[in-house]
Computed example of a mutant assay.
Amino acid sequence: MEETVRLYTRQNDKTLRALERDGRILNHRAYVEMHFGSIAPLFLESYDWFTKEAQKIVPKPEYAQASIWCSISAQNCLKPIDGTVVYVLDVPKNQIVYFDEVKWDYVLNRIYLPKDAKDDAKYKQELKERGFKSRFEFFEGRYKGLYPEEEKRIIDSWKRVFEIEEWSIFRVCGNIWEIKKEWVHKIVHPNEPIEDASDRV
């Protein structure tokens, strides 16, 4: 029997129709764009990078555009509110891309992701010695386009987002390319508990 992992994800309740009609739910770049509004272009660059790297870990189906963010615990999952539902899923283990959500903030901010505190201190000292006033301005701001080697160094560091040193329900996310109907353990509506004793696996 295929080994599965319990995941939790809050989604717009319009996805219920897609699940019924197509047998699966997909995420689209357009949804990311709508969610972030005017700052979407910056976020989409980060999401596109994530998509490119994540599919090296778990191959992306051709019909999928973006991954679906999932919590690894009911405790840390966003609760269902009006217009949303939470899908409680049993996903095959080999279909999940795990990453560190704290590290993801470095990718969103488009800054260098250090290996550890020592590497972080070393990097900041290097920037200071080279006369850089800010580490936030290599992709947007005064240094944009001027230091391609530094840009590459920063982008290469982001791969550490998939390296998990601390397995915590508050740090680790499990991303998937789709929600298949057969993976749905249950659907939780607003004012319903996400998990009770009989659900625990």
Rank of each mutant, 00 (worst) to 15 (best):
R21S: 12
E3M: 14
R171Y: 12
P61C: 03
K93H: 11
E20W: 12
I39A: 01
Y47C: 02
L16Y: 03
H35E: 14
L78N: 06
A40G: 13
E20I: 09
G37V: 10
Q11I: 13
A197N: 12
H28V: 01
A30Y: 01
E140F: 14
V97P: 00
L78F: 09
F139Q: 07
I179H: 06
L16E: 08
F132V: 11
P59C: 05
K52G: 03
V32T: 14
R130G: 01
R130Q: 13
R160I: 02
V184M: 00
V5F: 09
E62D: 15
T15M: 04
P114D: 04
I39P: 01
G174H: 10
V85M: 08
L42S: 11
Q65N: 06
E163G: 00
S71A: 15
R153E: 14
K52W: 01
E149W: 03
K122I: 12
K159L: 10
E163S: 06
S67V: 02
R6Q: 15
C77H: 03
L113G: 06
E149V: 01
K115R: 12
A117Q: 13
P190H: 03
K103G: 13
M1R: 12
I194R: 02
Y63N: 11
A64R: 05
G83M: 14
E137I: 11
E2I: 14
V86E: 11
Y63P: 04
R10P: 08
P61T: 10
G83C: 14
A54C: 02
K115T: 06
N175S: 15
S71P: 01
P41G: 06
T51N: 09
Y112H: 13
N94C: 11
V86K: 11
F136A: 10
